[in-house]
Amino acid sequence: MLSGKVALVTGCNRGIGKSILEKFAENGAVVYANARSVGCLDDIAQELSQKYSTKIIPVYFDVTNNSAIKGCFEKIRNEENRLDILVNNAGIMKDALIGMIDQKLMHDVFNTNVYSVINITQYAVKFMRRQKSGSIINIASIVGMEGSPGQVIYSASKGAVIALTKSLSKELGVYGIRVNAIAPGMIDTDLIKPIGSARIDENIKKVVMGRLGKPSEIADAALFLASDMSSFISGQILVVDGNTII
């Protein structure tokens, strides 16, 4: 479904990002796979490249580092000179009750979850505007739509991702660039483990389908939005949560 397309996926070292990387590789995309820790994607990149006869290129940088972002896009320009798909997946979750939210927490969460998305997208659009095509997929969260106690900053950051997705879709549609977001519910990744199994079990009761989602189920949604199967879909927030009632 993605043969001949070039993608950049941020935050590929684990969870949803890793699953999207695998899904895109399986579907024939050339993937620039981002992570922070140098070397952490080398093995999987080699494995996926061989298994699916495509190219997976690790690009190691912190998404909050603007000069590193630019370096990544210069590399893409020099090697492929096009970009068809951007998945803004990298994000952090830091929780605190109101009254205990310090400036650093606010800054860190918004820097990674919102400002980096804008910065990376600005570079990606340079390619897509010229091509008059492209698909940008932002990974949001259902808490960005519904809110969640103890997650004022995280939910606000994901709410911002949803808002910028809608605005970008309106600004960029004229260039044939589609912009959508996926709002995952509770997904079985390392991100939710710190809350403890008791709270996870409690949260599962809110999911009508009665289980956590799998990272691969988010990757399926990303594949759909990245591919031409969704060629007339833009400005949408695709909720993938097993019908969660918060």
């Binding site: 320009r77 600005q122 340079k126 505007r129 010229r130």
Partner: peptide
């Protein structure tokens, strides 16, 4: 302006900072 910047970036093979 964005079209002009794209044309200049293409012409000189550069990527300008915001």
């Amino acid at each position: 302006h964005m079209s002009l910047i794209a044309a200049i970036e293409d012409a000189f093979g550069i990527m300008m900072d915001t």
